[in-house]
Amino acid sequence: MQLRELVQELGYFNSTLYLINRLAAKLKITLCFFKYYFVVQPLAMQAFLPKGRGKNLEVIELPSGFQPHPCPRPATVIVDRYRQGAVCLAAYKDKEFAGCLWYLKHQYREDEVRCLYKLGSENAVWDFDVYVEPKFRLSPVFLKLWDEASTKLVNEGIAWSFSRISAFNTPSLSAQKRMGALVIGWAVFMRLGFLQLTIASLSPYIHISLSENKFPVFTLQLPKS
């Protein structure tokens, strides 16, 4: 991607962080920036997928201990997600794994950087790691997963879903916005070895961590109106 295109897509600040990451990786320096936007999306019974689409897709909940787990993440990460109380919904087409999404209630410990998200509402969940197998990326798999999760959660009294999106992933951010997501904040994490510096638009705003046991806690609130 050309520099001009990068700036057009990410803006000056996010492009700078992105380029520093690229340079640090090239120079084998353990410096890395992460920038997340926190978003919240209303859940609805009304499906995004038009009637008749996705009929050959089956969505099931995968219990903890499901082996082999089809989500392409390390086994330790999968175990940790279930330990936190996460739910995994997986889509299958003719018994072939097509994708999955995860969500949990109350709080989520981020697995990319050191921080904890607490949900400031009982009728909200945290959704994360929506994965679709490459061959199904244009298919109705993503919308089928989202619709099934929405229906299930709305039936349980849940009305909102929080998540975080990397500022370097603009297609994902624009897709979420088109589905009704609202940006409620952002956070930048700079990691250099064990040092983690956090600057965020939400409390605690600034945080310095030098160990695994010290991390910022973000309490995510629903929009006021």
């Binding site: 897509e9 995004f48 997928l49 038009p50 689409r53 996705g54 009929k55 050959n56 897709l57 679709v132 990326r137 244009l138 298919s139 109705p140 798999v141 993503f142 919308l143 603009t170 297609p171 624009s174 897709a175 088109r178 589905m179």
Partner: peptide
């Protein structure tokens, strides 16, 4: 960047409405 699975479904639906044919999920490639 806007061209994702949601856009594809919307385009397919619009094509079906405009031209009167139906597209099976398996034809979306």
């Amino acid at each position: 960047p806007e061209f994702d699975s949601m856009a594809v479904i919307t385009i397919i639906t619009a094509l079906e409405d405009r031209f009167g044919f139906t597209v099976d999920d398996d034809e979306i490639d």
